[in-house]
Write a protein that binds this DNA or RNA. Structure first.
Lengths: 199, 199
DNA sequence: GTTGCAATGTAAGTGTCGCTTACATGGAGA
DNA sequence: TCTCCATGTAAGCGACACTTACATTGCAAC
């Protein structure tokens, strides 16, 4: 991989994914331009289409890598926890870390239509589904006696609270409301407590 | 207004806002093309720029009308309720009605960057701020003894849960998870109960 | 009424975008 | 060594947001 760049690039596919991930992080999903990526990598504007059917296919790949990262973080969180409660808390923190640590990637994964698209490829749906199942298992472990519907309700409600908070904060909706007597960290703790204490 | 369309349109500005609102509802914020709107209204592609500085300015106007509608619905909900609990419940339902009844508009108002933008105009920020304050008042009325930070925390947490649930459902993230032993209606009730019962 | 002007329209053009088509190159296997 | 095919390029299409220079017209002052 990566020759001194003659006619052939060497590993254009991987380079495109890397560059696209950088662009997503810098300016969100809409900031990814195939022409721009191609130019920055020193290839023609048509070259990316040898590796990806269209812009969406490239973004799908970036999002899939994001879900792979998230799943790995979930696994670490749950493996290193002493109790189901600690595992749940660390799982939620992993989600928050991704959201606030790599907001561009998070938006691509959760705020775009990629996963919800009717023609979403398995390479994206599978890791996205694994993330949900991992979260579900963490909730189920909190209360082994709970039936399926209860666990689902708890998982969906908790996920909704976390996700909604992230979305509102990143959309700038809470500016000026979290400052005075209430910090973001306090809110996060309150939300985590609430998510945990409902079991 | 609205002559038989000679050289001048009559009320192009209002027609553009209406057409843009329809387009937003049909395909989301990204589906609005100024060229397309202009063509459908029978004017040149440059005409819209006599009334809106750019595409974002037009979308801001549509979103502002959406917030005006939401505020009116909030006011109705709170005026017609016998107790603070009922008022809160109806307020939340008004939010849900907008989200699921007019999802395209909802996405424009809450999932786009318009309100969060650094250069968002007052014509948008004012009604958006009113919506938040209306929600805040409804939460505060549930428990007059609660201090400011507590009310804020409850309002933000409850809003987050509602908003996150809507976002996840509309993003297709819960497909196949809400079907079997758990319907969407049950979940909504559970979420409303949870939002109410924390006071 | 006539006239002047500002509001509101148009035609044409710029630069960017995603994507396609036809052709060029060269590395890997027979 | 030769050939094939993956991978690259050049050129172009249509759509997009937006700009500029010019055309039309309703309205208000006279």
């Amino acid at each position: 991989m990566a020759t001194a760049r003659g006619y052939h690039h060497g590993d254009l596919r991987a380079a495109l994914i890397r560059a696209a991930a950088d662009a997503v992080e810098a300016g969100g999903p809409d900031a990814v331009s195939l022409r721009e990526l191609a130019q920055s990598l020193g290839v023609s504007t048509a070259a990316p289409y040898r590796h990806f059917a269209d812009r969406t296919a490239l973004l799908n790949e970036v999002a899939a890598l994001g879900f792979a990262d998230l799943n790995a973080a979930y696994a670490r969180a749950q493996a290193g926890a002493a109790t189901p409660q600690a595992a749940m808390r660390e799982t939620a923190r992993a989600y928050l870390n991704l959201a606030f640590g790599r907001p561009g990637l998070f938006r691509l994964m959760f705020a775009s239509d990629l996963v919800g698209a009717a023609d979403a490829p398995a390479s994206l749906l599978v890791p996205a589904g694994e993330a949900w199942e991992s979260l579900f298992r963490a909730v189920a472990a909190l209360d082994p006696a709970a039936d399926l519907a209860t666990v689902k309700r708890r998982a969906i409600t908790g996920w909704s609270t976390l996700h909604g908070f992230i979305t509102l904060v990143q959309g700038g909706r809470l500016k000026g409301f979290m400052t005075e007597p209430l910090t973001e960290a306090e809110l996060l703790d309150a939300i985590l407590d609430k998510t945990l204490n409902e079991a």
